[in-house]
Amino acid sequence: MLMLLFFCYCAVVIIGTGLLAVTLRNPVHSVLMVLILFFHMAMLYLSLGAEFLAAVQVIVYAGAILVLYLFVLFLVSLKEELRMPRFVSSAWLGRLIAGGLAACLLYILPVFSTGARGNWPAERVREITPTRALATEMYSASVLPFEIAGLILLVAVIGGLLLARREKDSSNTNG
């Protein structure tokens, strides 16, 4: 009963803040709404026994990625944003597509049937804490994807530096 209440609270907050995030006029308010959403996602992860991912969700998503978004928002001008229209001229088409997608996904949901069970039953996970179970799986079965993820981060660092770099000769013209 308590879990049900907890889930319903999290679901209502996630859907509400998600809708507010994509409709609010001020982009800073949108980012703050997404911050609340990420914290509630982390709470759901905790209730699903993914404590490491809950920590990563708070540290990486709420701590790093959203701060990056806020920085970039403050770099571009916010003043005109408050006066301009928020939505593209064909927003009704986007609403139609998103609504149709939600309806289709929810409609086909009951057809879904679960596959074979994995080799990490709850007792075994509880025996060696969830974080160690995750690490065991990650460093044994998915070592190669782990390395590729490191490579992707390296590419992101180099790409971010390259994109944000200011050209020497155009620095005085662009101010």
Partner: peptide, 20 residues
């Protein structure tokens, strides 16, 4: 819940003008 959250993301992606 995940499907609804995904659809909210699609809605925002298709309708907002601000690239951020």
């Amino acid at each position: 819940l995940a499907a609804i959250l995904f659809s909210i993301g699609v809605y925002g992606f298709l309708t907002r003008r601000n690239i951020i």
